[in-house]
Design a protein around this nucleic acid. Structure first.
Lengths: 133, 133
DNA sequence: TTATTTGCAAACCGTTTGCCACTAG
DNA sequence: CTAGTGGCAAACGGTTTGCAAATAA
């Protein structure tokens, strides 16, 4: 997978630190904006390259949630997401891990295939937006 | 939502029929190729427009599975998907609906929010690719 | 020293859109 | 007749990439 020696450059470190401190699942553009506050000369291409390298190395996760932009998550522990269809907010959800493992095992045995992961995405209206309406 | 009167044009009918008969979750490009066999002068823009209209009317489903292209599904009954990380195939999975409903209800009551849907995507190696290796 | 990384800008590519002719109802 | 639709081609927007200069180790 990774025969490449990674360098811990300022850019990569700043991007990683910002993402780990941010629990809003930001897009590359948003992360770019935040890194610029620390490294004014950083380029958008560098942000994309590093996010992809970090994801490749398993240090962060890419989230494809169907809004045409990839979101990134510094929290790589297994968890699910809830997307508010009103305000777009992405909320972490901790589904009982055993429930999902159970589904994965059932699937594997029934269909004779290997399951590596299960991703669960809920959609609806978040508590804040429910109150507003 | 849809105050617009939809016309059942040749193009829309052909696109819909092709998608319903195809269980491989094709992309717009693939659907375009198949419709050209019936309507040689159809344009890619028309395919995109009709797929979006059909999805808007709830007649088909859009699937965002993280490979930068949107896939379409003519089967709108609730079901999950398994994506083979080796060959890219997308397989329909029928997870026990009650299990998912249970998770949705738990989530709604615990977090005081409204859940409209839950989408479950498994990733791994399909039975055919397991045999090959 | 040297292989990796950066900044920059152009390229990429799936998707959308403006326009005018066409057509379903 | 006429509002919705099709074909075409240009535009869009998020992401990737080629290149020469900079830099971590």
């Amino acid at each position: 997978m990774s025969l490449v020696r990674r360098r811990m450059t300022k850019q990569r470190t700043v991007i990683y630190d910002i993402l780990c401190a941010d629990h809003t699942h930001p897009t590359a553009e948003v992360i770019y904006g935040k890194t610029q506050e620390v490294l004014p000369n950083i380029s958008l291409g560098t942000v994309y390259r590093n996010l992809n390298l970090l994801a490749e190395d398993g240090m962060i996760k890419k989230l494809d949630l169907g809004d045409d932009k990839v979101h990134f998550d510094g929290d790589i522990t297994p968890h699910s997401h809830f997307i508010c269809e009103s305000c777009g907010k992405i909320i972490d959800i901790n589904v009982d891990t055993n429930d999902l493992k159970q589904l994965e095992n059932d699937l594997a045995t029934k269909n004779k295939l290997i399951v590596h992961s299960a991703e669960l995405v809920f959609r609806g209206i978040c508590d804040e937006c429910v109150c507003k309406s």
